[in-house]
Design a protein around this nucleic acid. Structure first.
Lengths: 178, 178
DNA sequence: GGCTCCCTGTCTCGTTCGGGACGGTACGGC
DNA sequence: GCCGTACCGTCCCGAACGAGACAGGGAGCC
């Protein structure tokens, strides 16, 4: 019920945008709940009705974005080039969010969380193995994204997707044989 | 009381921004109340609690901006160059609003209203005369602003202020002698 | 040790808001 | 003609919200 209430969706959106603004301005560590709510024109009480703290806000914003990209990419297919491209197009569309969270002003806590999320997305493609390869792949992947965003996204999403895919396949054929 | 409620101020701001967006996109005439509230993430009921119709929204947004510029310029001084510059700096800061309202996609109704507002600002400087000179001055003034905004504000506010002031003084010395 | 700030997280009460339905008007297609 | 569609403007009621106060926790400074 309340999930679809326009006020709830609006509050979430305003808080999300204020969060990204403030991370860009002063870095995640220096962002306070009061500053977020002031920028968002939302009361602190409303913030705490929806979130435990600023960390949970980041998690939820991130989860929503990941859910969206999972939806557009699809779950059960093998990794094709179209899916790589779709992923980087998603990063491109949300570049302010990811750049703020993963960049120099982001938080190490979140970067680690993102790597583990990526590992979970990758792992099903390598059944019956331990989780070293997914972990390394996701680390490489996260690093590629961070580099791309920190350098203001040079080239098109297609190009960076192709380069990233090339690196990943090299890693898989080299170390994936067991 | 309710004027200072954060929700009221937020609603006004969201509606104002949505209005400017939509005028830029489709022109004032094609903007509906439903489209404004949808873009602003505000209910139609909330809109009608605050405004009679879209025209009153524009009027109030415009009145707020004019009140602000009157405040920064001051009321009782003679027109100095500093005041001309301050005025164009205001136009510059709110260029999306004025560009949307006065430009090709704006409304003739509003442009006329703006001219008469400018005439009211100018008239006190020419006491004891009929109102032809203020009317002509404000028309020229409005035209200058419209031209500047439609051409993406070439030059600095200072430069356009100086040119505009030069034109105005020429008009005054020519026709103001009576 | 004190003291002052600033921030956190929680709560209550009165206000504003959204959902949704209503009747009315205008326009266009068949 | 008679439909369907779209927008307007108004209303009620329950839900979300803001204001403001509260206790508690650091960090810095004298």
């Amino acid at each position: 019920m309340s999930q679809s209430d326009l006020r709830v969706r609006r509050t979430r959106r305003l808080l999300r945008e204020a969060l990204v603004d403030l991370i860009e301005e002063r870095g995640f560590d220096k962002v306070t709940v009061g500053a977020i709510t002031e920028r968002a024109m939302v009361s602190r009480a409303a913030f705490y009705r929806g979130y435990r703290d600023k960390y949970q806000l980041v998690e939820q914003v991130f989860d929503e974005a990941m859910a969206e990209v999972r939806g557009t990419i699809g779950d059960d297919e093998r990794p094709t080039m179209a899916r790589w491209v779709a992923f980087f197009e998603h990063i491109d569309a949300y570049h302010r969010l990811y750049g703020a969270l993963l960049g120099r002003r982001g938080s190490a806590w979140f970067a680690a969380r993102m790597r583990s999320s990526l590992a979970e997305m990758v792992a099903p493609h390598f059944p019956g193995q331990d989780d070293l390869l997914p972990a390394v792949l996701s680390g490489m992947f996260a690093e590629t994204i961070t580099w791309w965003l920190d350098h203001d996204r040079p080239g098109t999403p297609q190009e960076i997707a192709e380069r990233s895919a090339g690196l990943a396949y090299a890693l898989i054929t080299a170390g994936g044989g067991r």
